[in-house]
Every structure is written in C-alpha cells, then in structure tokens.
C-alpha cells in the first residue's frame, strides 16, 4: 500500500531500466503524465522512445524501476492486463491485422467489451473521427493506404475507450496533408478529455500540440519542459528542429 501513496500523477514512470536481449535500451527513465495532458517524447532513432512506450504498455518488462497508472503498479503486468486498465498503444508502423477486415480490426480493439450496444456506439464514434473507415468496412486491412492504415490503427485503439492513448510515430511515412489530419484528430481527442503520450521524430509538429515534452537520448531523459519552452531550447533546435 505504500506503493499507492508514492505517486499522485496519472501515469508515473520512475527510474526504469529496460533491455532488448542483452542490450540496455533505457538507463533509468523518469517521466510523468497528468490527466488531460498531451505529453510528447522526442528523440532520434534508437534513443529509446519506443522502448519507453513498450515498457509502459507491458510489451517489454523493465528490469528495474516502477511504473504506476492511477496509483496502480503496472510494470509487472502483461500487455493485455495493462491494456485492460485503459492504456492503449498505437504501435509503430501501425501493425494493422492485414487479413482481417477493417471492421474486424476495429472489433479486436473492443475484444474485452461484452455489451453489443457499447461496441456499436464506439464504432460509430470512431467512424465520426475517420469517415474513410466507414467506406471500407469490409475490405482487408492490409489493402489500405498508409494513411488509412494509420487511421485504422488509431480507430482500433479508440475502440478500447482508453484513458491514456499512446501513439508511436503516427506521422511516419505519411504525406504532410495526412499528417496534419492525424494531428488535428489528436488535438480533438485531447480537447474531449483524453490524455495522450505522443512519441515522434517529427519534433516540430509534436511540440506544437504538446503541453509538455521530454527529450530522450541514448536511454536517458536529457531535457524536459513545456512544449513552447522546448521549441525555443537551443539543444532541441539544433538536434531535432534543424
């Protein structure tokens, strides 16, 4: 129970160290997110952005350190247990189920939901955000374009009705106009109350919509601050906004 008292942030990551096989990818990462925030984690390739997300979602179990979500210890969870608590991760590269239809992809997101009416409501909401999906319901997910797949991946995560939505490089490989649409929807979701953790290489765009940001380098958080502050920070400007 002392665990409960030690944290009062919505999500709190403390001193986690995670490994990929023998290689240490995180050397004690600290970060927190409060309810209703958009927080972004920026850094270059291989800095540990995805590993941080995977450690939170339970895909990678940290060897050291703690992660608490709404006061509950989650760093020993398996991925589906953490997901059931209300943390959804939109994985890097979208990871659509290629041979499931769009509808089935979305239904997988609502796997834990028993109430058919609730599922139908969520489906309708998701189609509200992404009208394109509605037209393609019965098409296999793998046949869609990159942008549509990103929408589907986000829609699938929203079917979980998460409390915390984590997005791993949602802009990767997409045309600027699509990136703009995706970021608009992220902002809209946040306005409706959803807490968001956004991992991006596209630092400029991410910092523009974020309340706060962290900069990660070789497995360490080297900088944190408000989005607007980071945007004007010398190091960030040189390394990520150049």
């Amino acid at each position: 129970m002392t665990e409960m008292a030690s944290t009062n942030h919505f999500l709190e990551v403390k001193q986690i160290e995670s490994f990929y096989g023998q290689i240490q990818a995180l050397n004690g990462v600290d970060l927190y997110i409060d309810k209703g925030e958009i927080v972004t984690l920026i850094g270059s390739n291989g800095a540990g952005k995805s590993t941080t997300l995977k450690s939170i979602s339970g895909q990678v179990q940290p060897k050291k350190g703690t992660i608490h979500f709404e006061g509950k210890e989650i760093h020993k969870n398996q991925a589906h247990q953490t997901a059931l608590l209300g943390i959804a991760q939109v994985p890097e590269g979208r990871r659509i189920f290629p041979r499931l239809t769009v509808r089935e992809n979305l239904l997988v997101g609502a796997f834990a939901v028993k109430d058919k009416k609730a599922i139908a409501d969520r489906m309708e909401r998701v189609c509200g955000y992404f009208p394109r999906l509605k037209e393609r319901m019965d098409q296999p997910g793998g046949t869609m374009s990159g942008g549509e797949q990103q929408m589907l991946a986000m829609g699938r995560a929203l079917m979980m009705k998460p409390k915390l939505l984590m997005l791993d490089e949602p802009s990767m490989g997409l045309a600027p106009i699509i990136v703009q649409q995706i970021f608009d929807i992220i902002k809209e979701l946040n306005k409706e109350g959803m807490t968001i953790l956004l991992v991006e290489q596209n630092a400029y765009q991410a910092l523009q919509i974020a309340n706060r940001g962290y900069v990660i380098q070789t497995g360490n958080i080297v900088l944190e601050g408000k989005g607007s502050e980071l945007m004007t920070n010398q190091l960030v400007r040189e390394a990520y906004l150049a």
């Binding site: 991925a79 589906h80 997901a83 059931l84 990871r95 189920f97 499931l100 796997f111 834990a112």
Partner: peptide, 24 residues
C-alpha cells in the same frame, strides 16, 4: 465468432493483439 477472430488476430500479429486486450 469473437474467439475465432481473436485467434486470427493472434495468428497475424501476436504482439499487437495483446496490446488490444487479448490474452494471447
């Protein structure tokens, strides 16, 4: 069925299925 769909999802991408609350 729902479990059949979960089975196909796990067959196609086990990691992502587990992110979607499926107990693999």
């Amino acid at each position: 069925t729902k479990w059949g769909m979960a089975m196909r999802a796990v067959a196609q991408d086990r990691e992502t299925a587990s992110l979607m609350t499926i107990n693999v």
